[in-house]
């Protein structure tokens, strides 16, 4: 499973859930991804950091099916796979919480969690009259929230617009966790949140991960990353310049590599790619 292009330090026993090899993405003359590699192991929390323009967003969009890479290949569970759309990625168990959250404010919590994959009633009510099973969706939505310690949400029938920013984040994360059987991607989940609400999202990440689901976390919040992540993927100028365990480096070194003030070699780390 492990290939030449990944870090030699990765033991072969680690199964890679999602892998990108030499991914290329161009926008006109701008090269957003310049043969970048990517990997996430079963059960880990992987943080992706990088300066503005390093290609984080393009990378995440490739992994979530939102855009298609111009070159390289994507492997899901070791199988080469082309993710043509977010729908296809979701069908394979890859759930993304986009920075924009992708929630519908006027719709209620349960409807948002099941948006695009509604459950229908059994029997004639469902097959002929296309009737939705709102009761079951509400129950399962409540279950999904409870599983993430959001059990105090009393009414999944209330509209998302009546919730605060952190609560909306909770809905988006619960949706991803409820359906993300293979991997959950969180794009800047705390960028718009206060300290207290950020702390809650960190807890959500730990909760999802404790269920054995690997999490990709894109963030600028270094303390948060070093609190939850097992490894850090450092993206710079369209490439992955390092893939290190959080125990191997400190925050200052990670930031220095991210902005190009130092290199993995100078720090005695193996180059990731």
């Amino acid at each position: 499973m492990t290939t030449e292009s990944t870090a030699p330090s990765v033991p072969r026993s680690h199964e890679l859930v999602l892998e990108g090899r030499r991914l290329v993405k161009r926008y006109g003359h701008v090269v957003a991804l310049d043969e970048t590699d990517f990997e996430i192991r079963q059960g880990e929390v992987l943080a992706v950091i990088g300066d503005n323009g390093a290609g984080k967003s393009s990378l995440i969009q490739c992994l979530s099916g939102a855009v298609q890479p111009d070159g390289g290949e994507l492997l899901v569970g070791g199988e080469p796979t082309a993710l043509k759309s977010p729908v296809e990625a979701r069908r394979l168990g890859i759930e993304t919480v986009f920075q924009s959250l992708a929630v519908s404010p006027a719709l209620d919590v349960a409807t948002n969690i099941f948006l695009g994959r509604e459950l229908r009633r059994a029997g004639i009510a469902g097959s002929v009259f296309r009737m939705l099973d709102k009761k079951r969706m509400r129950q399962e939505a409540l279950g999904a929230m409870a599983e993430l310690g959001l059990q105090t949400l009393q009414n999944v029938g209330q509209s998302v617009e009546t919730l605060s920013g952190g609560q909306r984040q909770g809905v988006a994360v619960a949706r991803a966790a409820a359906f993300g059987s293979k991997v959950v991607i969180l794009d800047e989940p705390t960028a718009a949140l206060g300290v207290k609400e950020s702390g809650r999202v960190v807890k959500l990440i730990k909760d999802i991960n404790s269920r054995g689901i690997p999490v990709i976390l894109i963030s600028h919040n270094m303390p948060q990353i070093f609190e939850v992540a097992d490894r850090v993927h450092i993206q710079r100028l369209g490439r992955r310049i390092a893939l290190v365990e959080t125990s191997q480096v400190d925050m200052a070194d990670a930031v220095a590599m991210m902005v190009g003030a130092t290199t993995p070699e100078k720090l005695g780390l193996e180059r990731a790619s």
Partner: peptide, 21 residues
Amino acid sequence: TAWGTHIYAVGDNLEAARLSG
């Protein structure tokens, strides 16, 4: 019905509806 829900979703937040599949 799901179609009804999708009508609301499309009008409420087009991008969210698209990303929701």
